[in-house]
């Protein structure tokens, strides 16, 4: 555990909780892509199956359980409790275009051809693109609530911090995981355009709106 890793995990946790609180407090999930949230629930479910097979640490187990629990709670709020506020007309990204190729790639490029390892690889690849329905929704409506942009910013920071974590681990522990690193770089790149808008607009007190 290093400072980048810990800060990354906490940033990830902050993102998840910001989103849950936003939906809960405003009693609305307008502007949030339910499809992205379903993909994240799928990511955590397929990645953390090792909860059942191996124990790493209390921290590890606690965070995994919290991530999974929050992901399903978010999906529940969007599709059940506050379904009436869900922006289904704009949330039209075709997730099969992500899940099917990612599933195929997980079968072809993995560390070990075993069910758990393939599912872990699937979750890594899927996480790197799971935010696309959310970014697509924002590009369709042309704007995002400020709190939603804070959520996205924390998610992007989490991934960027993990990149620093891997650089650290490579130098000090000789550890590297090519699958995680390549997927992590792709994921971080997807946030770059958003980071730019966040810094130039949201941090200056303006609402994030895209030119028509």
């Amino acid at each position: 555990m290093n400072i980048f890793r810990l800060a990354g995990d906490l940033s990830h946790l902050a993102a998840i909780i910001i989103l849950l609180l936003k939906i809960w407090k405003t009693r609305s999930c307008a502007g949030i892509s339910g499809k992205s949230q379903i993909l994240f629930a799928l990511v955590f479910t397929t990645r953390y199956l090792d909860l059942l097979t191996s124990f790493i640490s209390l921290y590890n187990t606690f965070m995994k359980v919290v991530y999974i629990g929050c992901a399903y709670a978010t999906v529940y709020l969007i599709y059940m409790k506050f379904k009436a506020t869900y922006d289904g007309n704009h949330d039209t990204f075709r997730v099969e275009f992500l899940v099917v190729p990612v599933g195929g790639l997980a079968f072809l490029v993995n560390h070990d051809f075993s069910p758990l390892e393939i599912l872990w690889t699937f979750s890594i690849y899927l996480e790197s693109v799971a935010i696309l329905p959310q970014l697509f929704l924002i590009s369709k409506t042309g704007e995002a609530e400020t709190i939603t942009t804070h959520y996205l910013f924390c998610l992007g920071v989490y991934r960027a911090l993990y990149l620093f974590n891997w650089i650290w681990r490579f130098y000090f522990e000789g550890f590297f995981d090519m699958i995680a690193i390549v997927a992590g770089v792709v994921q971080t790149i997807l946030y770059c355009d958003f980071f730019y808008l966040y810094v130039t607009k949201v941090l200056k007190g303006k609402k994030l709106s895209l030119p028509a």
Partner: peptide, 10 residues
């Protein structure tokens, strides 16, 4: 490629 058994990263 080098990786520890069991995933310590989240």
């Amino acid at each position: 490629c080098h990786r520890t058994k069991g995933k310590d990263e989240l």
